[in-house]
């Protein structure tokens, strides 16, 4: 069990250092993948808490997200789209003050909260138990909100798109194939 404890703390350290690396390095790729290492360490920690599904999904989603984020970071950040070395920090004083304040509040919370002691044993399926503890009776509400949120995203993209179907398919919507700047693969 000592080995597991040590591994858990080492992973915690890796997670914190991986997060700190983001602000130290001078490359968008290194910053992004420093963050990815941090997330993977957290994912493995969650795995060690027997929350297998949540742990593996954290690794899956975060690595994918960082792979995509690296592309956007390199494209859009900085004066010369981040292909060159660049600083990862700005507004240092404000950021430092905000960070210290946030740390103090969170640390105080950890120390001051009256944490409950364990009653009984963990359920056999801790993932289900976690889901019910988090969602409880709000499950139905969340299940309804999810499609609404997806619809909002789609609607937002549709409203933001500069070209409409009339630009693509002509005034009578009969032009085939459509006039696209970036042609698709199925010849719509």
């Amino acid at each position: 069990m000592v080995v597991v404890d040590v591994a858990f703390w080492v992973l915690g350290l890796v997670a914190v250092l991986g997060g700190a690396v983001v602000f130290v390095v001078d490359s968008m790729a290194r910053a992004t993948y420093g963050l990815a290492v941090s997330f993977v360490a957290v994912g493995v920690q969650v795995l060690m808490l027997q929350q297998s599904y949540v742990g593996v999904v954290i690794i899956l989603m975060m690595v994918m997200e960082m792979a995509v984020m690296a592309v956007y970071m390199v494209m859009f950040m900085g004066m010369n789209p981040a292909l060159m070395p660049m600083s990862m920090v700005h507004s240092n004083r404000t950021a430092l003050a905000a960070a210290v304040l946030a740390f103090l509040i969170l640390a105080a919370g950890i120390l001051l909260v009256d944490w409950p002691t364990r009653r009984g044993n963990p359920q056999p399926d801790v993932t289900v138990a976690l889901g019910e503890a988090l969602m409880g009776r709000q499950m139905l509400v969340m299940a309804v909100i999810s499609p609404v949120m997806v619809a909002t995203i789609v609607a937002g993209v549709v409203l933001a798109a500069p070209r409409t179907r009339y630009d693509r398919l002509g005034d009578d919507l009969r032009r085939r194939p459509a006039d696209d700047h970036q042609p698709g693969g199925v010849g719509r």
Binding site: Y53, V57, I59, V71
Partner: peptide, 25 residues
């Protein structure tokens, strides 16, 4: 014998995204 082996496989194949892009970068 991971209880979520299928998701594990999926997570590893997503890892390839990062790895291939890093090789290119």
């Amino acid at each position: 014998d991971l209880d979520v082996g299928v998701v594990w496989f999926n997570a590893m194949d997503v890892m390839v995204w990062a790895v291939v892009w890093l090789t290119g970068w």
